[in-house]
Nucleic acid binder design. Sequence first.
DNA 1: GATAATATTTTTGTATACAATTTTAAATTT
DNA 2: AAATTTAAAATTGTATACAAAAATATTATC
Lengths: 207, 207
Amino acid sequence: MSKQGFQAAYLHCYELIRDRILNGELPGGMKLVEERLAEELGVSRTPVRESIRKLEQEGLIKNKRVVNPSDEDLRHIFQVRMLLEGFAARCAAFYMDEATLEQLQECIAVARSGSVSETMEANKMFHDIIVQSSRNPELVLIIDRMQSIIYLFRRAVVHHKRPFLIDEHQQIVDAIRAHDAEEAERLMKSHLQADLDFYLHLSRSSI
Amino acid sequence: MSKQGFQAAYLHCYELIRDRILNGELPGGMKLVEERLAEELGVSRTPVRESIRKLEQEGLIKNKRVVNPSDEDLRHIFQVRMLLEGFAARCAAFYMDEATLEQLQECIAVARSGSVSETMEANKMFHDIIVQSSRNPELVLIIDRMQSIIYLFRRAVVHHKRPFLIDEHQQIVDAIRAHDAEEAERLMKSHLQADLDFYLHLSRSSI
DNA sequence: GATAATATTTTTGTATACAATTTTAAATTT
DNA sequence: AAATTTAAAATTGTATACAAAAATATTATC
């Protein structure tokens, strides 16, 4: 995980700019000027430019401005996410081995007892493990690409602990353990739907 | 000097390189050297470089080489495609108006009577229309990104004139017209599965 | 003759300069 | 004052130069 020595500037810039967008330093709607960013990061325009193009492909930047996703955008993303993660949960019910099931159970345990950031990390890992168990790299990649926008939205909304979230995770694990593919998919979809509804409710009431 | 008027060079290059990959001029596995391409296209490395990055994001190039997707890759892409286009077909059964239905019917008519390239175009449009009718731009975008690799594949299939392909399109239209969402989704999935199987069969027997 | 070490070439990554374009501000007209 | 034109500035797109890395060929060693 720790990079050994050299990293290409354009990769480094990409990460830095992405992080600044995700943590709100570069807020939604802000115009990104190549030269200004280059100066701030201490490099020339060239690597900055490549980073911006990459972030554009990822959907975090749209014609040189930081996106701020609308409720509608989020609904669309979640519709896709429900399809894909639902399918992943179904696969998990077929394929998953005991060791991985234990990992899921551990995520739940950490999420129940940990700090806010530990809980967030554990919940993210819960979903990652299930997505991975689709054993479909294409599907993993697509969900990965949607993650940053979802994260962006989460941050925009004030972070509250949604009730029942972890209980729903437990139900999903139970269905997977029982090899009930149909139920695992159903539970995953309604879990994500509940997540979406919660965010949308928050974002509406906080305006 | 090289001012082509209306279109930016990097977009033009992107299209040219993409086309050369799709029509086999740049075959799978070939190393793409920025300078050589630049000279061939009569521009500097800069726009070529950006094009290559974009094509890398799209999955047509992987570390400077033209991909040739393995059977496994195609299976994964089609698994996602079946999920998303299946869902789109389901939506179509709910939303689609008479005029759009006629467009689908027209695609089938053209595909039945047209030349090879007309048939290809018509079949692509058939799928595009159904994907559009999901009314989910995120879903449309994801399928669009997979399109190049799918196109590469479709060319092989239609060139060999897969039997029943157009009949299956007709069945899908019928289900949509009857507002039978369940059936439309099922038919779309099995249509895509048949496409995949046909191609995999071809690729195996031609080795 | 095979292998390791070293030089050479090729190719990529980055900086910089300049041209083309877009955006913004100013001036002019109504 | 509002709208339209024109000038200025800012920003992006492209070409080019050069440095870093990777790939290839060459020499030396066993």
